[in-house]
Simulated scan of single mutants.
Amino acid sequence: MERNVILKYLRGETSPEERIKMLRWLEKDPAHLEEYKYLRRIFDATLCNEENIPLSIHSSRSTNRRIWMQVAAAVAFICLFAGGTWLYTQHLSENQAELLATRDIHVPVGQRTEITLNDGTRIWLNSNTTLHIESQKGKDLRRVCLNGEAYFEVTPNKHLPFVVQTGSHEIQVLGTKFSIFAYKDRNDFSVKLYEGAVDVSDKQNATTLRLSPDEEAKMSDGGQLIKAPFDKTESLLWIEGIYHFEDTDYASIFRQMKEYYKVDFDVRNPQILQYKCTCKFRQEDGLKHILEILQRIHRFEYEWSDDEQTVIIR
């Protein structure tokens, strides 16, 4: 695979044809996946904004030094296209490079990533997710905008509330652990709280809910923001690259696969949507493997459309 195509994929700039080609290349050989992981680490280390926000490098000798993100980006891309991928990746690993701040992050289809903000807040981003981080300079809060799925461990700061904006919803915290599912082209929305407290606001209906640990805010069938308890036992397996479904109907599984792999599903037999299963999949196994497993649980046939953008299921 040409590295310029891999780079476009990391940036989320591939055409539909290039994306399909990329996913098939990854599935073809484990060595391809390992090469991709090397390039992914470099790309993650070079995410930067337009304000030259510095990157902190923590060395194994416990000494800290500051370097500018643009320098890191320049070195990384030279390594990327000059064949020095392994050396630069090793350098980052040995020095435990930590990404402190950025502006826009997009996680490509079928991938996930983790970042650390300059206040110590850690964020895990799932497949096909975009995060915009606003500059904090001169502001009395910390704000990010999310389209997709993420898990947050927010560093406490009573003087600077942390706010997540997701379309028509807003989540405000001081310091806590919570997850959000909010893809802009989906009606599904949920906030699950694991520790601390959060306020979830629905601006359209002028509703605000205060969540306690083990509570979830979500939209009811009638379009109202409600809260309910949830089982957190395996709700964050996606952070480890595992998709877990518990007694879930195929309609819901297909909706999530649409977001994670950016493909459409055309189900010609409505009965298939009512099938249910309890199962786990590894993200790296790819959509083809997931469909094959679902076929074994409840029989159906599928094929790709001519443009390879839609899975037709019968």
Rank of each mutant, 00 (worst) to 15 (best):
A82S: 15
R65Q: 12
T85F: 01
N52Y: 15
G83D: 06
W86P: 04
K177M: 10
S127Q: 00
G167C: 06
A150Q: 03
A74D: 11
T155I: 07
G148I: 03
V109T: 14
I105T: 05
K184A: 12
C48Q: 11
L100C: 09
E98C: 11
L131D: 02
A150T: 02
L131I: 05
I180R: 09
V107T: 08
Q70W: 14
W68S: 10
C79R: 13
R61K: 14
V107R: 06
K137W: 06
T85W: 09
H169L: 04
R142K: 09
F178C: 03
L160T: 01
S127W: 01
L80C: 12
L160V: 09
I42N: 12
K177C: 08
T85K: 13
E51Y: 10
E153M: 10
D185Y: 11
N52H: 15
P54V: 12
F152S: 06
G120R: 05
T89D: 15
A74F: 01
D44W: 06
L92A: 04
D104R: 11
E114A: 08
S168Y: 11
L125S: 04
S168E: 11
L55W: 00
F43K: 01
R112H: 05
Y151I: 01
R122F: 03
K139D: 07
N147A: 02
V71Q: 10
N64D: 13
W124F: 13
I180C: 01
Q165K: 04
T121H: 09
K137H: 04
F162S: 02
K158R: 08
V71S: 08
T89K: 13
K184Y: 11
H58L: 10
T46M: 14
T102G: 14
E94Y: 09
